[in-house]
């Protein structure tokens, strides 16, 4: 799920950046440091949409660096248990398949894949129905349901299932060719 929230961060800036473009330097450093990171509490920071407030700088003794408290608005993505996501398959093996929904890695184990789909090894490993009408392989788009999340300090890993109503392949790259 996506959220638009206000976060705060202490930014350290080198004295060489002090000048008329101090604020611009601070914002560009903030974007570089924060965008694409993940925190267990808020999820993945997708993009910074604006800087609300830059507080008074605090000079650090000995180094000359200045710490600025910065409040910024950002879009974050946090997956939840029970959420339905659309993801792209990145790897298929006999244990199941891995998929990516933006920055989130999702693993769907083979016993959470419908029973009528069987693993086919070969040049392009895939899960195929007995009649061959549906195929899950690398770069396939699937709709899946998250059944569990593991939240670490720097990453979020999910377990998904396609063994439920209205879940499964939504676009097959092999069919387009």
């Amino acid at each position: 799920m996506f959220f638009h929230i206000v976060l705060e961060r202490n930014m350290q800036l080198h004295p060489r950046h002090f000048g008329p473009h101090l604020r611009d330097k601070l914002v560009s450093k903030l974007i570089k440091d924060v965008e694409g990171t993940c925190s267990g509490r808020h999820g993945f920071v997708v993009a910074i949409t604006g800087v609300e407030d830059v507080g008074k700088g605090l000079i650090r003794e000995g180094t000359g660096y200045v710490t600025f408290p910065v409040k910024y608005q950002c879009v974050v993505f946090r997956p939840f248990k029970g959420e339905i996501l659309e993801a792209v398959v990145t790897m298929v093996n006999k244990m199941g398949f891995f998929a990516e929904a933006g920055p989130v890695q999702i693993f769907v184990s083979n016993h959470l894949i419908p029973d009528d789909m069987e693993f086919q090894s070969g040049d392009v490993p895939n899960y195929t129905t007995s009649d061959g009408s549906v195929k899950i392989q690398k770069d396939s788009e699937v709709r899946l349901k998250i059944i569990g999340t593991r939240v670490d300090a720097t990453e979020i890993f999910c377990i998904g299932t396609i063994k439920d109503d209205f879940l499964g392949v939504i676009s097959d790259p092999g069919a387009a060719v």
Binding site: L112, I147, G148, I159, K163
Partner: peptide, 25 residues
């Protein structure tokens, strides 16, 4: 029977160590 919402576990046949699907990566 439905295999719904059950997190798969894996066992090493040699050292008998158990892993869950969360350790897949």
């Amino acid at each position: 029977l439905d295999s719904r919402n059950t997190i798969q576990h894996y066992i090493c046949p040699n050292c008998k160590k158990r892993y869950s699907a969360f350790d897949a990566l």
